[in-house]
């Protein structure tokens, strides 16, 4: 198959995918979205020839618009722009999870520092203030006092970008020193790891220790439901255990990542994550081709 890969940086994750795709004889067309332009009539060359386009843009803004254009050109794109839109914005993610009945941390959104402070005081301390767009644990604040909250809110207001005045306040989950990352393909969990740290942030990008994690059936089901809630595709579903000692059966989904990085997962688990992703892509393209070859009569119920 011919695969388009939208990127602005080739991370180890993209390199794993590129290697796997090429070793299987697939032709990969890398498109640097910093150089490409996206008009209304035709895709940037050579995307038009591709059987599927992988959105691997590291910048959320580029990911959202570029994937939307690829869909506009009627080309299959992973992930869909709808999924990108939901996953790239924490407010959208929280609402989608809540609407689907997927447990997610209690969250309040406010639009002024005054109302945000009221929301923070309602949660009590500690609670968490997150940027609505962002990743790798950056600009996350665990608020332990009113004076700290006032300072962080003032800083956010001063940062300038309007998104920093969308105050996303969330309950602090006293997790057992770790959270869980589940990689899903169209809802099916394929690999999982725990990410442990003494710090309250347990992102692998922030240096957390990663370890393969055997998924309880309940977590598998939550990962499926979280994937469905945001539109499916190739996703990283992040969950926390609720009771703080890791022995409870209750979980909450706090994030779903749509340009999921899997380098750390690949190193933690006893499987080839890139190969599994490419297996899924091949099946997806084959199904798409089979659907296109079917006559209208064949696809009618």
């Amino acid at each position: 198959m011919e695969v388009g890969l939208l990127y602005s940086r080739i991370r180890p994750d993209e390199k794993l995918l590129l290697t796997e795709l090429r070793e299987r004889g697939h032709e990969v067309h890398k498109v640097d979205v910093r150089q490409a332009t996206f008009g209304l009539d035709a895709p940037p060359e050579p995307l038009g020839e591709c059987d599927v386009v992988l959105d691997r843009c590291m910048a959320t803004s580029r990911s959202r618009y570029a994937s939307r254009f690829v869909e506009h050109y009627d080309l299959p794109v992973v992930n869909s722009p709808e999924t990108a839109k939901v996953c790239s914005d924490k407010v959208e993610t929280t609402l989608a999870l809540s609407e689907a009945g997927v447990p997610t941390p209690e969250t309040t959104v406010a639009f002024t520092t005054e109302s945000a402070l009221e929301a923070i005081e309602s949660f009590g301390y500690p609670c968490v203030l997150k940027p609505v767009v962002g990743s790798w644990g950056r600009l996350m604040a665990k608020l332990e006092s009113r004076s700290a909250a006032e300072a962080v809110l003032e800083h956010k207001e001063t940062l300038g970008h309007y998104e920093h005045s969308v105050f996303y306040v969330q309950q602090f989950v006293d997790k057992p020193g770790r959270d869980l990352r589940v990689l899903t393909v169209d809802g099916e969990p394929v690999a999982a790891m725990s990410r442990s740290s003494d710090h309250w942030l347990t992102n692998a990008a922030a240096g957390a220790d990663t370890e393969s994690f055997d998924l309880p059936a309940e977590v598998e089901q939550l990962a499926r439901e979280a994937s469905a809630a945001v539109g499916g595709g190739l996703l990283g579903v992040d969950l926390m255990e609720l009771d703080g000692d890791g022995a409870d059966d209750e979980y909450t989904v706090h994030e779903v990542n749509h340009t999921v990085e899997f380098k750390a997962l690949n190193a933690a688990v006893d499987m080839d994550v890139a190969a599994t992703v490419v297996d899924w892509l091949e099946a997806k393209v084959a199904a798409e081709e089979a659907g296109n070859e079917a006559t209208p009569a064949e696809v009618q119920p």
Binding site: R9, M58, A59, T60, S61, P131, V133, G134, S135, W136, R138, L139, H161, A205, G236, N257, H258, T259, V260, E261
Partner: peptide
Amino acid sequence: EAPELAEDWGE
């Protein structure tokens, strides 16, 4: 020189 980290970078 690689671009500076931007606010919306991530996964």
